[in-house]
Design a protein around this nucleic acid. Structure first.
Lengths: 185, 185
DNA sequence: GTCTATAATGCGATAGAC
DNA sequence: GTCTATCGCATTATAGAC
């Protein structure tokens, strides 16, 4: 599953063959089909990997004391992945684009579910900050991440992540917050 | 070329066969190969279509008197395309994601060139407004567009375009501007 | 459960009649 | 320049020995 997630991210769903994944995992082709009946099942396994990785990540961030620190740390993690993003794009975002075109078995919405998990977590942070319209703020932050990842990838320029990341940090710092964790703007 | 651009956007590059494009254009398969030697040549033709469409669009916007009006009209056009974006994503953005994975003939950077055209035009508007860091502002605006298109597509929710569009309009209006068209912030 | 060999299919590309 | 028929190949998926 880890090999599937990695190779599918780098090569894309359509250009990746089962043989590619089998090779990356160090097993023969037929063996893969023993555990995953179809290629789509492998794609779903990759999605589960991304979902698990996200849960792990937010779990770590939740240890930070304030919601603002958590959001800023999240942006820091994004920028830290700038070279991967510039080369292959956001794993979940590019997968969402590919699955939308794939249009079989109604799997085109499953990547959206992983993105929804991130949106919900971010929205929770904004809500804890006492800000109004936390759902719109989450949309803005996650949208900015997907946008800067796509641009960095399309232009092959990791510095885009750095520049936009800095702006997002300043934006987060500029949001109204009295330090109590309860605030309406 | 128009049929290629349309079908490639809707079905994706890898899932679209030459037969699909030939059918959409109302010509037999072999005929397509008389004008386009390979499938990649068709993809490049589609990119040229997008590039031409963009030039046409900015040409219209350039008729508006002020840069701020032009940018706000651009956002309005994006929101006006919300149903298409929610169903198939931004034509150029999704193509950039797909071509990055395709990785053949060095065509993976050509979608980036079209996006660069948009970035440059937007940057020019910000520069005319006299704002500092017009390149970063362009990155923010175009990045927001790509991000909201991807989210709208992944979640199949055109309203995301409306909500983020409204925010972008407010953001543009909040930028420092004295009405002379020359200003540093 | 592991692995090899192969069947079945779909697609890019071409040949060649008209 | 238009169109039909087909080749060659890559890939998903399976059969079946071990």
């Amino acid at each position: 599953m880890a090999a599937a997630a990695r190779v599918l991210h780098q090569q894309g769903v359509e250009r990746t063959t089962i043989a590619d994944i089998a090779h990356a995992a160090g097993v023969p082709v037929g063996n893969v089909y023993y555990y995953f009946k179809t290629k789509d099942a492998l794609v779903q396994a990759a999605l589960a990997e991304h979902s698990g990785h996200l849960a792990e990540l937010t779990g770590e961030l939740d240890k930070l004391p304030s919601p603002l620190e958590r959001l800023k740390a999240l942006v820091g993690l994004w920028v830290g992945q700038r070279d991967v993003a510039a080369r292959y794009g956001c794993p979940t975002g590019t997968l969402a684009v590919e699955l939308d075109k794939r249009a079989e078995g109604g799997m085109d919405l499953e990547a959206g579910r992983v993105i929804r998990l991130l949106l919900d977590w971010v929205e929770r942070q904004f809500r804890e900050l006492g800000l109004s319209d936390p759902d719109n703020l989450a949309l803005t932050l996650v949208g900015a991440y997907q946008g800067m990842s796509l641009l960095a990838n399309a232009l092959r320029d990791p510095e885009i992540m750095t520049r936009e990341g800095s702006r997002l940090i300043r934006w987060l710092d500029s949001l109204p917050d009295d330090g109590t964790g309860h605030r309406n703007s």
